[in-house]
Design a protein around this nucleic acid. Structure first.
Lengths: 226, 226
DNA sequence: TCCTCGACGATCAGAATTTTCACTAGCCGG
DNA sequence: CCGGCTAGTGAAAATTCTGATCGTCGAGGA
């Protein structure tokens, strides 16, 4: 798998190159937009990692030119915090996913792998259940059209519940997914987290979506039965 | 590599078995102390994962009997939170490392690998520099004999600094090790974390050990030069 | 059927930790 | 000596965890 990185900032560029190389990809790195565009149109890359902020020719311009040239490989955009609007703009131009700096290495790998796996077929970037929606790209939730701000843990928990909607998720699973923890033990972080999530997502609305399954775990479902 | 787990609590047991199996180990699981002891003395295991709390025959008893029988394989003890005293007791009896429940999967793997790697040769479990000591097992720091309580992040940071004592650690390295983050960006978490660590570890003492290397990063050293 | 007990989950407030933000101080090159 | 950049600082905000207590469901017995 060949990946092209277009990133002017040396540290980030090296970090990306090293990280992706270690993960077994073949990586090229362009330090500025024009070089990047040139390489991207000539070379045979499976994925492009593209910084939004570039001197001279910025990320959008590169992306636009690339698409005009008929190149359809998936593109992972790197954007700085508080540039969420960039994302929307980029999405319209045909970016495939976003990563907000600073980001965790595990996050980077996950996105890259996901993009490569699905190729051009975009996987749903919005999870939904009844009137509850979770936009994975914008990292934002909505219920009945009302925007809901979620913290990292809340987001992770809701994402898990939505991805496995209709299934009962045992605490141990939730713990291992959301906390990377083995739970045995004497803490009730999960209950508290569910409480917080409910307060935002269920309390002000009907019907209640997060259901407790006694002795088993939690389930998210729009089912009206009983 | 063959590992024996002795754990009565089904969830934890299954979690451990599954986790270690997936990591490529051959795993046996005993549900109670006596079974565990029997298997451990008969079978040919490279490592024992032993819960402290067991019905009938508890972890210490198993360990003791095992050592009496001349079995010298490394032992990883599982203890519940707030049982730090258990640790001391276990250490005296010849346990090799501890894991406090609940624990992260990554933590488990790290400990297991480390124990297997070093075999019977215990690697230093206390890092030190001048009169500053960091006890990795008890997760406790000490300076000039004074005990210092550290938070998770503080501990991780200090451990990193101590492990690479005398080296200048660039921010990007610290970020990737302690935060698993790519830093680019506009936050100063590292500065703040260093500040907090200094407040505990350096402010009340002399000489100052954590040095700032302008434009480069941070370094921990007892060097008196300049 | 109704009651009681015990286990499990819910809830809340407070504490601890971590992050963000705004501002200050210090170093370095010109 | 003057900016301009880098690091230090303090305080507030945000998030997460802990611990205590309360409520509720359901099994089993009266």
């Amino acid at each position: 798998m060949k990946i092209l990185i277009v990133e002017d900032e040396p540290k980030t560029g090296d970090y990306l190159r090293q990280g992706l190389t270690e993960a077994g990809f073949v990586v090229d790195l362009a330090r500025e937009g024009l070089d990047g565009l040139h390489l991207a149109t000539t070379g045979d890359y499976d994925l492009l990692v593209l910084d939004v902020m570039l001197p001279q020719m910025d990320g959008w311009a590169v992306l636009q030119a690339l698409r005009l040239a008929g190149r359809e490989m998936p593109v992972l955009f790197l954007t700085a915090r508080d540039q969420v609007e960039d994302r929307v703009r980029g999405l319209e131009l045909g970016a495939d996913d976003y990563l907000v700096k600073p980001f965790a290495y595990s996050e980077l790998l996950a996105r890259v792998r996901s993009l490569l796996r699905r190729g051009k077929t975009k996987e749903p970037e919005v999870l939904a259940c009844a009137d509850l929606e979770l936009d994975l790209l914008r990292r934002r939730a909505t219920r009945a059209g009302v925007r809901i701000d979620l913290t990292a843990k809340e987001f992770a928990l809701l994402e898990l519940l939505l991805r496995r909607r209709g299934e009962v998720l045992p605490r141990s699973l939730i713990a291992s997914q959301v906390w990377d923890m083995n739970f045995d033990s004497d803490t009730n972080v999960i209950e508290v987290a569910v409480r917080r999530l409910r307060a935002k997502v269920d309390d002000p609305f009907e019907p209640k979506l997060i259901r407790t399954v006694r002795g088993m775990g939690y389930m998210l479902d729009a089912d009206v039965s009983r």
